[in-house]
Every structure is written in C-alpha cells, then in structure tokens.
Design a binder for these strands. Sequence first.
DNA 1: GTTAGCACTCGGATGTTTCGAGTGCTAACT
DNA 2: AGTTAGCACTCGAAACATCCGAGTGCTAAC
Lengths: 340, 340
Amino acid sequence: MENLSDRSRVILEAVIEDYIRTAEPVGSRSISRKHTLSPATIRNVMSDLEEMGFLLSPHTSAGRIPTDKAFRFYVDSLLTVRTIEKEQQDQILSQYKLHGRDVAEILKETSRILSSFSHYMGVVVTPRFNATVFRHMEFVKLGGRTILAILVAINGVVQNKIIETDEVISPEELVRMSNYLNELLEGLTIAEVRNRILLEMEDEKVRYDTMLARALNLSAQTLDENGTEVFIEGQFNILELPEFADVTRMKDVFHAFEEKNQLVTLLDRCIQSEGVHIFIGAENYLSRMEKMSVITAPYMTGNKTVGILGVIGPTRMGYDRVIPIVDYTAKLLSKLLDAE
Amino acid sequence: MENLSDRSRVILEAVIEDYIRTAEPVGSRSISRKHTLSPATIRNVMSDLEEMGFLLSPHTSAGRIPTDKAFRFYVDSLLTVRTIEKEQQDQILSQYKLHGRDVAEILKETSRILSSFSHYMGVVVTPRFNATVFRHMEFVKLGGRTILAILVAINGVVQNKIIETDEVISPEELVRMSNYLNELLEGLTIAEVRNRILLEMEDEKVRYDTMLARALNLSAQTLDENGTEVFIEGQFNILELPEFADVTRMKDVFHAFEEKNQLVTLLDRCIQSEGVHIFIGAENYLSRMEKMSVITAPYMTGNKTVGILGVIGPTRMGYDRVIPIVDYTAKLLSKLLDAE
DNA sequence: GTTAGCACTCGGATGTTTCGAGTGCTAACT
DNA sequence: AGTTAGCACTCGAAACATCCGAGTGCTAAC
C-alpha cells in the first residue's frame, strides 16, 4: 500500500467521513474547522492526495470527492469497525420473533431487516440447495396424472414441483416410492442425492423394477430445477439518497436489478471466503452499479456455507455502521437455520 | 350519464387518445388535423367539455388534459375493447411453457407476463387459501422437537411451516397423525378445515386420545397463519413513463408499494365481482396512486374465485390494449391452476 | 353554426449577470 | 522546511431577463 504520512491519512479520513455525511464535495475549510490546521495546509495535502488518485475534483472550484480507491483504503486501513450494540442486537432478534417460521419467510424478513437497519437495500440469496442435507421426499397425488413432489432439506428448506406423469400411479405406490427413496437417500447432501440417483438408474436390478425406475425418474424431475432466488428489500431507501436524485441514475439502479442473475454471480463470488466481503464501486464489475458498494457475508447451516446476504448502498455508505450489521445478521441467520 | 353530442364525444375521444399517446396536453390544432374541423370549432367544444369537467387546462396557453372523469367515460362508453390477437395469445401461452410448474413460480411468471405484455406493472395476489380444497397434510421431523408441517391444496398450492412441539414425537406417530387428518379433512375447503378442527377438538373422545389431540393441535398451528403475498413485477417499466420523470412522483409510486396490504385491500375490493374491473386515478382511494389506474380480474380454481391479478399503469394507459391482456391472462391462469 | 383573424397569456428555452465557495500560487512567518 | 495569510482566479448554481411559440378566447365575417 502507498505510504502516506500520518497527516495525509488523517485528512483523507476526514474528507471521506465528511463526504459520507454530506454527499457533497469537501472543501479545505470545512476540514480546517475540525483540525487545528489552516485551509492552505490542507489544500496542499489534498492536492497530493489527488495526485495519488485518492481524491478528485469535479471541477476547479468545487471541493474534492473520494475515489473508489480512497474508499478501499479507508475500509482496509483507516476504518475501525464499530462493535454492534447490544441494543441493536436485541432489536434485530426481536424482528425475527415477530414472524412465522417458514424458511422463505425468514429469508425475506432477513432482507427486510438488513434494509431497515442499514437504511440501504437488503439482499438475501436463497440457500444453495446443493450443500444442504436431504431429509425427506414425498409425492402427493393431485389428480389423474398430476403429482406434487415435495423435497425437504434438513434445515427446513422446502422445494416443491408439480409433475405430470405418463401413466396413472396409485397413491399406495407413491407411498412405497417415497419410502424407498427416503431410505436410499438419507443423510446425503442434495448434490450427492443427484449423483446417487443417476447412479442408481443405471443399475440392472432397477431397470427391471418399474416402481423403482419410476421413483427415481420422479425424484430426478423434482431435482432438475434448482432456482436460486434473490430477495431485495428497501429499494425505496435509495430513492432518498441525494446521489440518485437524478432520474437517469435511478433508472440505472433499477435496471441493474432486472438481471438478478448478474447480481447473484457477484454475490456468489464470495461464497467460499469466510466473513464480510466488500465490493466498492467499480469493483463489482457491473457497469450499472458503478456508484454502489456491496457488503456481503455468507451464512451457513451445519458448517456449510449455503447462501449469501448483504447490503447494497452508495459507495459513500456508512461502512463502520453497516459492516457489523451484516456480520451479525449473517451469524444470527446461520444460528436460526441451524436450530431447526 | 351526461348527454354529450356526437361531436363532443368524437372530440373527447380524440383528445383522450392523443393524450394516451403523447402524455402532453392536447391542443385544438392537432385534433383539427385529423378531423375536418377548424381549430376554432374544436376550441369551442373543448371549452364546453372543460366546463363539464372532462378536460382541464394546466394553464392558459397549454392544451388540455383529460380528467379522471373523462377516462371513466371513455372506458365506459367510448372504448371498444380490442379482441386479443391469436398471436399474442400464443406468445403468452408459450411464456408459461418455459417455466417450472410450481404454483408460486406460475404466479410470479404471470406477474411478469402481465408486466411485459402491457408495458406497465403486473400484479398478482396469491390465492385465497380459504377457498381452495384441502388435499393433503404431512409432518416431517427435522430434529428433536422441530417439525415441518406441509399443507397441500388440491390445486397444488403448498404452505409449509416449522413448528416447535412441547414433547418429542416419533416419526411413526407423525405418520399416524397425518393419516388420521387426511382422512378426516378430505374434500373440505381450507375454511371448512379450520372449523372442523376447532369442532373436533372439543369432542370428548379426542380429548383423551393424546395422539389425536396432538394431531389436531399441530394442524391448527399449521393453519393459523395465512399470508397473502403480492407479486409486483415491472417497476422499471414505469420509470420510462414521462409522467414519472419527476423524482417526487416516482417516490410516491414506490412508497405506495411499501404498504402492500393497502394494495391488497384495493384489489380485494373486486374479488366477488366477475370479469375485468377498472380503477381510474383517484378512484382507487390511495393518495399515493392518484395518477395511476388499476385494471384487475379475478382468477379461480374449480369455480371459486381464489385470487386477483392485474396491471397497474398511469391513468393514461392504453386501456383498449391492456384490458384484453388482463382478461385473457386471468382466464388462462384459471385454466392452468385447474389442470392440476 | 362555422371559421378566419387577432390580441393575449404563459411556460420553456436561452442568454446574462451575480455571487460565493473553493482553488492554486506566492510571499511572509515561525 | 513546513505553515499560513493573502489574493487573483475559476467555475457552477441561482437569479433574472428576454424571447419565442403554442395555444387560448373573443369577435366579426361567412
């Protein structure tokens, strides 16, 4: 990292924090008020910082704005992350208490929590089904050849799918099928389940047992689709931010969410790495989101990472405040999913 | 209804259609170009229409804008709804084909379809569980005292909930429970199921049978929450509309969606009435949505209305184009839900 | 009843001026 | 050598002025 003098650091930090507060270019005078230095001195330092690529001036007679690089440096080296207050912890916890305990509900609520506590947007990607452990599979007959397949993971995540079969299958046979499958697949992760089914299907003895073949076929169909969903809450929060007062900027943001899968790839990028991850401005490689930062953290069930959550806000977001919120929420969600 | 001369009607219609196209106040000249009447004559008529409350001028030297009353009259008396083209029908149908057949997916897709074909926002309210017929109930043991309850309606709508029990229940007992319940509740609507459970619980013989009591207790818990969800898609569509170029207007719209329950009450208002319903501007009684119109239609399974779908757009929306889309989609969705 | 003609209005676009925040540079100060 | 006061300069935002044209209402002629 660049070697900055102590003074430069202090001033850079001051500029950044001012900018986070006001969203306006920061002038030398406003900083001199808080430090016992004259504006001229500060101007000199700022000029150096600009040279180094930490600041930029929109035009000659405005103040200066921190660049992405500055925020990166701020987050890496200057920032002392606040510890989350007990009070806030309790508030978050009690939010969860209010709602039902269906997993999808919990995830949506998590997104809402992230949004309302950060004052930005909350985002939660649904668990990677693959990493979770199989618990139960069940077939319910809805009508003639229509069957509802229900797949339950050990953490309570449910996936259901309506399947049209070629031939009519009796309810009794359906029960036998699910018994067979539940025994066969017990304790495997969904990814393993997938493999196992393919393997089984090649087995000689299965090929000549219609029931088994059908069962495997059905379960394969149940698994074939594996939607990752994204819950984004609090879009309206960013409507209030001055940097998006401009209509075209706003459109950009919303268009960015149209392609949710792009967002998923972004978030997925940090699925292996532990702990909080931060993408600042252009670092997220989505042109629509150049002016935004993303703070993410993985959450897990058991000790496997199954999903990602985070907060999306402007580059000038209150990192010190938001990081612990994301961190705590991820841990809390992991705990909630485990308890089940 | 006001008695308008034929000429007035023609001119009013022309103004409305111009305004729908351009979103700009309409002047007398642009109309005179299409009809063989001089601007002056048209001005006289327009002046009358203004007097009657069908038009208003934002200021002296602008053209005129149709009022809510004008749109109401237009929809009721002037509009000839186009029939939906075969081609468009096929397009919509094929959209459905692309996706999985989980009911929640279908509803979300419906919302997307409404949005993309109307170019406004699509909205779908999830089925009123109460009106649908019970099909199956199942309990899956997740851990010590944690149980996942799954409730399936005949149309494939699934509701699941995680329940914490006071005592450990064995898997075998869970199976017996669900067998008992499935037999007991077969063929009832969810509303009836609710009553039946309460009734049953008071029965003497049940009170002394722990298993039955527990089963009923569990199912009561499964039912107690009955979330109506709303899928809104295509918000970004309205970002493109000139009337929302103003940032404050836009905020209003998004804030309106914050309270989704308000929206639900609006939509619910037409759940009994058959066919397409239209709320124009202030008619929807949501101050945030004064500049918007809503076109709704109920959809059903069996022959019971279970939910509402619709399109939300500006008051100057292309009614002739959108009404058949809403109508057709509602019918198609009903058919899709029935087929299962 | 219709229309041409005309004076009038008013908002949007364009141009001009003013104001002030902020800069860079230089020279004096510690 | 680092710091600071002073000053000329820059440039955008806001305020003000002007112009233009689309559109109106009214009147008088057709």
